[in-house]
Amino acid sequence: MTEQPALRILVIGDSSAAGVGVCNQAEALAQPVAKLLAIKLGRLVTWQLVAKSGVNTEESLALVAHSELRPADFLVTALGTNDVTSQRAPHQFLQDYRRLVKEVRYRTGAVGLVATGLPPLRILPAACHPLRWYLGQYAIRLDRLLQHWISQDATARYISLDWAAKPLEMARDGFHPGSGQYRRWAELVSEQIADLLAKQDRLLA
C-alpha cells in the first residue's frame, strides 16, 4: 500500500490567525489544526502560517503578495475584524476576500477553503457601549456576506464564531480568543477539512 503524501494546510489572516492571545503556536490555530488532522487521517500534515496583526482583507492581499507561499491543499482564512474597525465598505470587503482566495488558490494549487466568520464583536470586553453594539452590527453585516458567498462554493466551508460569544473565556486583552476558544476553533476547522477531503475522495473514487 502506497503511503499517502502529506496534507498541506495554509492559514492566512490577522492577529487571531497569528495566535495573539496565547503563548505559543501549540495553543493557537494552525499547528493544532495540523495535529488534529494528522490524528484523524493517520497521515502527515504540514502547515504554513501567513498572518499579521491589524490587517484587513485589502492589506492581506499585500501581505500575501510579499510572502513565499508553499504548495497547499487547503486554505484556512481568518479575516474581517479589522475591516470592521477600519470601516471598510461591505462590498469592498467581499471583493478583496474573493481576490485573496483566487490569488492564493492560483499560487498554491489549494482547492479546499475553510473561511472563518467574523467574531461576535457585540460582546467585545475591550470596547465600551455603544461602540461595542455598533461594531457588532457591522460585523454581522460583513459576516452574512461572507457566509452567502461561501455557500455558493462546493469546495468551501464557512465556520461561524458565534459560539465564542463568551467574554470570560477570551484572552486577557479582552479582544482575542482564549486558549479554550482557540482549541474549539481548531477542532471545527479540522472537522471541516476532513469532511471536504472525504468529499473529494468520493468524487475521485
Rank of each mutant, 00 (worst) to 15 (best):
A171S: 14
L196Q: 11
T85K: 09
T155Y: 07
L37E: 08
A62Y: 11
A38N: 03
E187D: 09
A34I: 05
Q4I: 07
V11C: 08
Q152F: 03
K166V: 15
A110D: 06
T108F: 00
V104T: 06
Q4E: 13
M1V: 10
D195E: 15
Q147V: 03
Y106I: 00
R141G: 02
P130F: 13
E68G: 13
L94Y: 02
E187K: 09
R105I: 10
G13C: 08
R122L: 07
S16D: 00
L121P: 03
K102R: 15
S160D: 10
E27S: 13
F93G: 06
A18S: 12
A17R: 05
A171V: 07
V50R: 06
V76P: 02
T85D: 07
A126E: 09
L131E: 12
K40M: 12
D96R: 12
W133E: 12
R144D: 10
L41T: 07
R141H: 09
Q87Y: 14
N56Y: 08
P119G: 11
E68W: 08
V22M: 00
A89C: 03
L37G: 11
D96W: 11
G13V: 02
R144I: 08
C23W: 08
K199C: 14
V50A: 11
T81H: 13
L36A: 14
L146W: 05
G180Q: 15
Q31A: 09
S60L: 01
P167S: 06
Q137S: 01
L145F: 06
D153G: 08
G117N: 04
A186F: 05
Y138Q: 15
L37M: 09
Q95S: 10
A198G: 09
I39A: 15
R122I: 08
T108M: 01
S53G: 14
R141K: 10
G19I: 02
A110V: 06
Y182G: 11
R8C: 02
P177N: 12
K52W: 09
S179D: 06
S179R: 15
L131K: 12
G80E: 06
D14K: 06
I39K: 15
Q48N: 01
E59S: 12
A164H: 07
G117Q: 03
V20Y: 12
I123H: 10
E187L: 08
V189M: 01
Y134Q: 14
M170H: 04
Q152R: 13
